[in-house]
Write a protein that binds this DNA or RNA. Structure first.
Length: 488
RNA sequence: GCUCGUGUGGUGUAGUUCGGUCCAUCAUGCCGCCCUUUCGAGGCGGCGACCCGGGUUCAAAUCCCGGCACGAGCACCA
């Protein structure tokens, strides 16, 4: 009889995102970037995970700009619209609700005042180093037992610009004996006198992330918070605040840190510095891990979605090669990417022998005849890659077996007659000067050559035969085509 | 130091809740072959893993204890 082994069914890998815990019947999620620059590859994880879950359960995503810092990470005015557009590009839909923390300051300040009034918060005028001492010693600082009236008076002074920046902070009253030092009377609001790029100098007291985010999540009715596990203590801090207000904290889920080999560690601030110092061209410099750069190189948004969904919500810290994303992208774009020839470092040769009288008709896509043809004039000189000459016995792809001697290529057969190497080539008549720009770590490598000059559309991605995928970025004044390397 | 989190092939990932259906899934990578007028795509095959040590149990990737490693938080940044 059949052994058990034949009946045993192989286990399967579950695909897609796992079921969300908690009640997701009226799901509200949020994605909360700082508009101190456009979105990066890392941000796209938040966009994808949140928007995919919203799609799964018919929920909503709030796009919230956490722009409450004017000093360390000041917002860039243009970044608000960049991010809205990038969110839409990545997720394939626009955010359901878009809000800016800087527009909602009165709400935060009201809650802060209420917290003080209720005795759950206090104005602390210790220096940060002094407070750190108290925190480490699990001791209460002198400001902690001030009367509510005294705290309200200090609060007024903070808001009336009587107290200088750095002179006072509002703390949430927890317990100084809490085992986790991060939770002991954590800071909720501080003074910033540097004007905000969007709302000017209207406010003197600004909430910190943990406070602003907690209040706004409640205001928006957020049901699930999905964020990096570096924010686990934020959850704990905010839960204590919610207890003060008598609110129920959303379900929190986390992902671990992701490092992409090719990009290493980076931050929006560090990219901004690199651009300001001139070591990078701009936010879309192809070496950068920004969404703008990935778009410019020709990545499609589906690849980003598949990539992040495949990674899922693991709390593991991972380091992954860009190649993984590239393989997703290649699989998706290959069926719809037209072929062209790019000859890098070209050598000119002349064809000898009997030439066909009609043009050579090549498919724009080998698996999709409907895409049509590219027609080449085979008379006249042609270009081949210098490194392809070898012993001279090669097949010019889609054309003929030739033997190359010096500058001449003798046509031996149109049919494929043996196992000789197949190389790509290009009639000069059908070519134009081109430059392939290849990002390589912190460098940019450039390869000069000739590009098949047939129906080239700026912004389109082509598969350069035997080379790889690249996107046509622009034409220069002398008509040189500039291609940006995507991947092989 | 305190607190928290995570450990499955080279890289990711499924399985861990409720131990057996797991001599462990899938992808990517690498190797080989087939097909092919691309070194692309596709097809087929192969390589390769449960952090370590105890314990419970007929049975542990899965439960318990103890190590170890890595990461994060302890900012008047987000």
């Amino acid at each position: 009889m059949a052994p058990d082994a034949l009946e045993r069914k192989k286990q399967e890998k579950s695909v897609g995102l796992k079921e969300l815990p908690g009640d997701y019947s009226s799901l509200v999620l949020r994605f909360a970037p700082n508009p101190n620059g456009p979105l990066s590859l890392g941000h796209s994880r938040g966009v994808v995970i949140n928007s995919e879950y919203a799609k799964m359960y018919g929920g909503k995503v709030v796009l919230r700009f956490d722009d409450t810092d004017t000093k360390v990470k000041p917002p860039i005015p243009d970044a608000y619209s960049w991010i809205e557009e990038e969110f839409e590009w990545i997720s394939g839909r626009s955010a359901d609700i878009v809000i800016r923390a800087s527009d909602r300051m009165p709400i935060y300040l009201d809650y802060a005042r209420k917290m003080i009034q209720d005795g759950h918060g206090y104005v602390c005028r210790c220096k940060s180093e002094e407070f750190r001492e108290f925190r480490n010693l699990k001791e209460e600082c002198p400001c902690r037992n001030k009367s509510i009236e005294g705290n309200i008076a200090d609060w007024e002074e903070m808001n009336e610009r009587v107290i200088e920046s750095g002179g006072a902070v509002v703390r949430v009253k927890t317990e100084m004996t809490l085992p986790n030092p991060a939770l002991r009377d954590w800071p909720a609001l501080r003074i910033q006198h540097k004007p905000h790029p969007m709302v000017g100098d209207k406010y003197k007291v600004w909430p910190l992330l943990d406070f602003q985010s907690a209040i706004e999540d409640h205001e928006q009715g957020v049901t699930h918070i999905i964020r990096g596990k570096d924010l686990m203590d934020s959850t704990r801090k905010q839960t204590l605040l919610y207890e003060h207000f008598g609110w129920e904290y959303p379900v929190a889920l986390y992902w671990g840190r992701v490092k992409v080999h090719e990009y290493g560690g980076f931050s929006t601030s560090s990219i901004r510095e690199a651009i300001d110092s001139g070591s990078k061209e701009g936010w879309d410099d192809p070496r950068l891990p920004t969404i703008k750069a990935l778009q410019r190189r020709g990545f499609c948004s589906d690849s980003l979605r598949e990539f992040w969904i495949d990674l899922g919500l693991s709390q593991k810290d991972i380091s992954i090669p860009l190649q993984t994303l590239e393989s997703f992208n290649a699989r998706i774009i290959d069926p719809k990417t037209e072929r062209r020839v790019f000859v890098g470092d070209p050598s000119e040769i002349l064809l000898e022998g009997e030439l066909p009288t009609s043009d050579l008709r090549l498919p724009r896509h080998p698996e999709n005849p409907k895409a049509g043809n590219r027609n080449w004039e085979v008379g006249g000189p042609v270009a081949i890659q210098s490194s392809d000459v070898g012993d001279g016995v090669v097949r010019l792809k889609d054309f003929a077996d030739v033997k190359i001697v010096d500058e001449y290529a003798n046509i031996e057969s149109f049919e494929k007659s043996d196992e000789r190497r197949i190389i790509h080539w290009l009639p000069l008549k059908n070519s134009r000067k081109a430059r392939l720009v290849i990002p390589n770590g912190d460098e940019i490598n450039e390869l000069n050559g000739l590009l098949e000059d047939i129906d080239l559309v700026i912004g389109d991605v082509y598969q350069l035969e035997r080379v790889g995928f690249a996107r046509l970025d622009r034409f220069e004044e002398d008509f040189t085509a500039v291609l940006i390397w995507l991947h092989s």
